[in-house]
Design a protein around this nucleic acid. Structure first.
Length: 533
RNA sequence: CGCGGGGUGGAGCAGCCAGGUAGCUCGUCAGGCUCAUAACCUGAAGGUCCUCAGUUCAAAUCUGAGCCCCGUAACCA
């Protein structure tokens, strides 16, 4: 089974376009793997514990559990708005997760991977962590990024991270723990060098923080939020038999995928094919803590996940932030331009791994030119001519020529490029290949001029061939578009009268529309977006 | 400071890891078509791939030096 996850979001605020991006990116990958015929389990969720949740709740004057619940709903709403096809849903306050974390802590404690230590040092209240000399700047001071720093003496529990760093370096260098793009891998290796000698403090005294998971062997402490959150990737995947009914991933109290009402068998899921994450949580959490935790728990080298690290959407070259007031609300965006346009833009206008600028102008432009004018118009003109010239029926035909052959060649090229690009998580390149194909088919129409062929009864066989190639091309394109725009692809298929339910990528070949196939009434699938103002 | 990203025709970006006719979307100019969502197609103009040096038969791509821009508090993918 192919197991894909997103990072779990921190619900101390509303989701923004970056959250939406990670969901769409992972959803496209999940749907792609399903299209390949793989059984997929796609997990996403929320990380509800931690000091910052408590702080936000205090600021808003509400109970922290209430806050978590309220904001979690917003993230669930986002999944619906974007038609995210997650199979599982992780909430770290769920009992199933808490007991799994407790079991792991107990286990690590017994293995001697955890120890208690008195530590006196400088503590950043903002970052909730002790600072070491490595955090000092060249003048020996702690920079403003740490906020208020105070000297504090405290007893805490530590995880022997340093036991695993040499091993970690090895599996990253040998790509057993895959990190992409390549420049991120270099960054992680660099970060290991800096963090090699320090262990990870995994507890917070309960009097300071009680919102979290209690250490099972020392009731005076709460588990550090990352040590808790990262475990969601296995707790909600059935690790240590944590089977049972997971939390509901929609507001009707159902999991999104009725095929997976309970958590599947862990041995079939692990290792995760991908943990899709953002660049900000790569170091240290996902690229250092997490593999070391897995190693300490006892996972072998070939049971390590892969880490595709995506970039950020900026706004006018600036980082998106609440203080700049340039946050883009994905749900408003979907309400304005529709789910298809948002999914298309988020897939189309960013190179996976890099940053990009979120530019509404480009969203309109790309969607209108490539989907409305390109694919949508192609489908519309194909169906219209089939209806007007052939009474919506595509009978058998004999005709073939170089132009027809060219369309089939372009289709073969598309199939090759599609898989190649998708295997590299290059959504943008994949869509570019699709657009190239669409253009080729539009060119085919210009050259063969079916509207002229129609006038000559002697050329009817050629007309049938041309229209079949056009409709067939649309059918093919609709299948390949499914991971990106599932709703639009389904509409296309309805108009083409194509049942795609059992179609898988490996056996996708030219000839989906058999002789005698009838098409349905055309109606624009991608209405052009009218720019506001 | 250190760490990281970037500098590619008018705009925005791929390509660089695994050197070998510089690619994509838009824009501009000229033309064609009329089946279609005022959509589609063709042709053209436009580039010292930041600079310098090096390696090489060959460098946007590798190496070294330099210049410039951005990120590296919080909110947060």
């Amino acid at each position: 089974m192919t197991f894909l996850t997103t990072a779990i979001d921190y619900p101390n605020g509303s989701p923004h376009i970056g959250h939406a991006y990670e969901k769409v990116l992972t959803d496209v990958l999940a749907r792609y793997h399903r299209l390949k015929g793989e059984e997929v389990y796609f997990l996403t969720g929320v990380d509800q514990h931690g000091q910052k949740m408590v702080q936000t709740a205090e600021k808003e004057g509400v109970n922290v559990a209430t806050l978590a619940q309220k904001n979690t709903k917003k993230f669930l709403k986002l999944l619906q708005a974007l038609d995210i096809s997650n199979d599982g849903w992780a909430e770290t306050t769920h009992d199933l997760h808490k007991s799994c974390v407790a079991q792991i802590l107990t286990d690590l404690h017994q293995k001697g991977q955890l120890y208690k230590k008195q530590y006196k040092g400088f503590y950043s209240i903002r970052q909730e962590q002790f600072l070491t000399d490595q955090e000092r700047d060249q003048d020996g001071n702690f920079g403003p990024e740490w906020g208020e720093v105070e000297e504090r003496e405290e007893e805490n529990w530590y995880f022997k991270l340093s036991d695993h760093t040499a091993w970690l370096r090895e599996i990253i260098e040998t790509d057993k723990f895959g990190i992409t793009p390549a420049f991120r891998k270099a960054e992680v290796l660099n970060a290991i060098a800096r963090a090699e000698s320090t262990d990870l403090c995994i507890s917070r005294p309960k009097e300071r923080l009680s919102w979290g998971i209690e250490l099972p062997f020392d009731k005076d402490f709460t588990t550090y939020v990352w040590f808790d959150a990262l475990i969601n990737y296995i707790s909600f995947a059935g690790y240590q038999g944590s089977v049972g009914v997971p939390p509901a991933s929609d507001q009707a109290g159902q999991t999104n995928n009725p095929e997976h009402p309970t958590i599947p068998d862990f041995t079939q899921l692990w290792p995760a094919r991908f943990h899709v994450i953002g660049k900000d949580i790569m170091v240290p959490a996902h690229a250092i803590y997490w593999p070391c935790m897995l190693h300490a728990i006892g996972f072998s080298d070939d049971q390590m996940p892969n880490l595709p690290v995506h970039g950020w959407w900026n706004v006018r070259g600036e980082k998106m932030s609440k203080s700049l007031g340039n946050i883009i609300d994905p749900i408003t965006m979907v309400d304005t331009v529709g789910q298809d346009a948002v999914r298309y833009y988020l897939s189309r206008d960013i190179a996976t791994g890099k940053d990009s600028d979120f530019d509404p102008e480009r969203l309109y432009l790309l969607f209108n030119t490539e989907m409305a004018n390109g694919l949508g118009n192609l489908l519309n003109r194909s169906l219209n001519m089939t209806k007007g010239s052939l009474g919506s029926e595509l009978p058998a035909y004999e005709f073939d020529d170089a132009e027809c052959q060219l369309v089939r060649d372009e289709h073969a090229k598309l199939l090759a490029a599609y898989s190649e690009r998708m295997e590299q998580q290059d959504l943008r390149g994949t869509l570019e290949a699709l657009v190239t194909f669409i253009t080729a088919v539009n060119t085919f129409a210009e050259r063969t001029q079916p509207w002229q062929l129609k006038k000559d009864e002697a050329k009817r066989d050629q007309l049938v061939a041309v229209l079949h190639h056009m409709c067939e091309a649309c059918a093919q394109a609709s299948i390949l578009l499914t991971p990106f725009l599932p709703a639009a692809a389904a509409k296309m298929q309805a108009q083409l009268n194509l049942d795609s339910s059992n179609l898988k990528l490996p056996d996708l070949q030219w000839g989906l529309l058999k002789p005698g196939h009838t098409t349905n009434k055309p109606k624009p699938v991608f209405p052009r977006l009218e720019k506001p103002d």
